[in-house]
Nucleic acid binder design. Structure first.
Ligand code: MN
Ligand code: MN
Ligand code: MN
Ligand code: MN
Lengths: 219, 219
DNA sequence: AATTATTTTTAGGTAAATCTAAAAATAATT
DNA sequence: AATTATTTTTAGATTTACCTAAAAATAATT
């Protein structure tokens, strides 16, 4: 069976919204997809007919195994293309999301596999998110939010929680990127800012907002 | 202004059908796009309103300068992606057309320019067709059909007239590819077959059909 | 428990791109 | 020039993905 770009976008959105527990509501989906609740209801009926999800009126929605498989295939393409754009074409990681939103709908299976091989089977995309392999498996994220890292525990920046240009600008200014090693020296409860130290640099303070936008992997 | 995938496919089809002289007819377009004449008429009105072409009832159609510009941008993307697929991802040139039909509609301008640079600004795609540069200019094709090459004139294979797997299979068997140098030793008028010679190999005969599917550049 | 607020669905409609069948225009033949 | 054939356009439907407004179901408050 084949799916329209719109259908694929719905499946991916549901995948991202559905946590381990709980169903996804019509309004959540409408907000995520910048559309109206009535349109979502229409599409859910259609996707249910295609057996991609389970849905009952007023009860919200969950992906079926088929639906999850499709979602993982789309996420795989999205993240592989993002990796390609940053690693091979020298895009900044704040510029790739929109382009990958289009590229993720290119249908050729062979293309995905060849692209993966060309890139050297990367495990994480430029934002630190795991790339599903051809069977839909992805590396478990051991990363934690920087705000939750214990004091004096050395860790490596492994991901970002936002893909905005503004965040990238700030990170560049502070010379922080994916792979940077740092540790927390102090946490200030007044404004939840934290003092961090990078290698042989002097410690400096970063805001709560910035700390929450960074994910790290203890080393 | 932005254009739908369908609109882009119409513009590209008109571009390929319109020779220096003459307008493109509704039926020609319908055949090329595997659709019906009535659908073509509808779309031509729409594209005329968008000033991409000149069209008068029953008189056929021609691209405006705007239309040509758009067509060249699409052809550029199509051929750059084909080059990428063959050169970087190791596709065979008989496998890339369908994939490029999708990739040519990815809208990011920056992507095209970065891809072009990454590929080293190639001038010709894997089928020997010229790739328009960012201004829409393309290298002039000095190639001639192999059937028209004079006897004993050394030439280099520069393009193919078909992208079928069947042709590729035959060319592989005869060890002929883009770049192969050869000359014609004899032409047989009975069946229009020709005898060709490659470097230090013994001469052998190829059919009229094969000769017509090959383009060469005298060296 | 009754009322009020929120969420979700239904009903009915629009725009894009397609189709078939019939009408109109143009081209080719007698 | 008249007839016939072909091409092209119009008329009217269909499908997909939207929308707004109203109705129905569920959740939250009094
Ligand atoms: Mn992204
Ligand atoms: Mn990402
Ligand atoms: Mn092609
Ligand atoms: Mn080509």
């Amino acid at each position: 069976m084949s799916f329209s770009i719109t259908e694929e976008n719905y499946i991916k959105a549901i995948f991202h919204l559905q946590q381990a527990e709980g169903n996804v509501s019509t309004n959540e989906l409408a907000a995520e997809l910048h559309t109206k609740a009535a349109s979502v209801t229409d599409m859910l009926k259609k996707l249910k007919a295609k057996k991609l999800l389970s849905y009952e009126k007023y009860k919200g929605v969950r992906l079926s195994n088929e639906g999850k498989k499709l979602a993982l295939a789309i996420v795989r393409k999205h993240r592989l293309w993002e990796y390609f754009l940053v690693d091979k074409l020298q895009f900044g990681w704040d510029e790739v999301h929109e382009v990958a939103e289009e590229l993720e709908h290119i249908s050729s299976k062979k293309l995905v596999e060849k692209l993966d091989a060309f890139l050297g089977y990367p495990k994480f995309d430029p934002h630190g998110d795991p790339i599903p392999d051809s069977h839909g498996k992805m590396a478990v994220q051991v990363q934690v939010n920087l705000i939750d890292l214990p004091v004096n525990r050395l860790a490596e920046v492994s991901g970002v929680g936002s893909q905005s240009t503004e965040l990238l600008e700030l990170l560049k200014h502070k010379h922080i990127g994916i792979g940077t090693r740092l540790e927390i020296k102090r946490k200030f409860s007044f404004d939840h800012s934290i003092e961090i130290k990078i290698r042989n640099q002097n410690p400096f303070t970063i805001s709560q907002q910035l700390a929450q936008a960074l994910f790290v992997k203890p080393v």
